[in-house]
């Protein structure tokens, strides 16, 4: 999957590129409308991420250009304004989605993945309560909340999901996540804590349960 990212704030762009790279999404980056038109002539993109305000013009003009030239390529707008007229302009220009800064990179990632899999039958590999996981596309959500995990958290989640609702022992977890490493207790606790925090938002029931000397289980409720 490769996307074109047009953003004039280079620091912001680098952060986004780094994040998307960890999600197996390649990014071509440009900082102006003219550069975007140039690169798009040589490359087909799966999606385009556009900033609204660019140094050489309005992002909506670029969107209109892509709508004429590549109508099949979905466009997501990013903007620092939160007013309805900007949103309407974006949708009028052909945007499929719109995010206001500051936004969660996880949300951008999920929206990109969902846009790119639109039309294909999306099957969640694992569902538990309102938690929905697609391990193939690495799309994780709980209710309306998009979640991104680090690589090790994905490995742990996959293991727990495989054995859910059964408990998985600490040894098995360590062997799976850190197969060739010496692992400290802190590393293990850190990983568990991060996964638990990511899976449990404000007001949401905990889905990760620990039992002393037994292990960790991914389940809807504790027995």
């Amino acid at each position: 999957m490769i996307v074109l990212f047009v953003e004039d704030d280079q620091k912001l762009a680098q952060q986004t590129i780094d994040f998307l790279a960890l999600e197996d999404i390649d990014v071509d980056y440009v900082s102006s409308i003219s550069a975007a038109k140039q690169v798009s002539m040589a490359q087909r993109y799966d999606a385009i991420i556009l900033d609204m305000k660019l140094p050489d013009g309005d992002g909506t003009l670029l969107a209109q250009y892509f709508q004429r030239d590549r109508p099949e390529t979905p466009i997501i707008f990013l903007t620092g304004q939160d007013n309805i007229s900007d949103k309407l302009s974006a949708f009028d220009a052909g945007a499929l989605d719109y995010l206001t800064k500051p936004f969660e990179l996880a949300e951008l990632t999920i929206r990109l993945k969902l846009l790119l899999t639109k039309g294909r039958t999306r099957q969640s590999n694992f569902i538990l309560a309102d938690l929905s996981v697609n391990f193939a596309e690495k799309i994780l959500s709980r209710g309306k909340r998009a979640i991104t995990l680090s690589p090790q958290q994905w490995i742990l989640l996959a293991l727990l999901a495989q054995q859910s609702p059964a408990y998985v022992s600490k040894q098995q977890i360590i062997a799976t996540v850190w197969p060739d490493q010496d692992v400290s207790n802190d590393m293990y606790k850190s990983l568990l804590s991060r996964l638990r925090t990511n899976l449990t938002g404000v007001g949401e029931n905990c889905l990760l349960f620990s039992a002393k000397k037994v292990g960790v289980a991914l389940r809807a409720a504790m027995d």
Binding site: Q15, T16, A106, T148
Partner: peptide, 18 residues
């Protein structure tokens, strides 16, 4: 947005100290 992104990037890093 940069602060939010940096925090998201931290989320992606494995083996953060407890």
């Amino acid at each position: 947005a940069r602060m939010t992104n940096n925090l998201s990037l931290l989320d992606q890093i494995d083996q953060l100290p407890l």
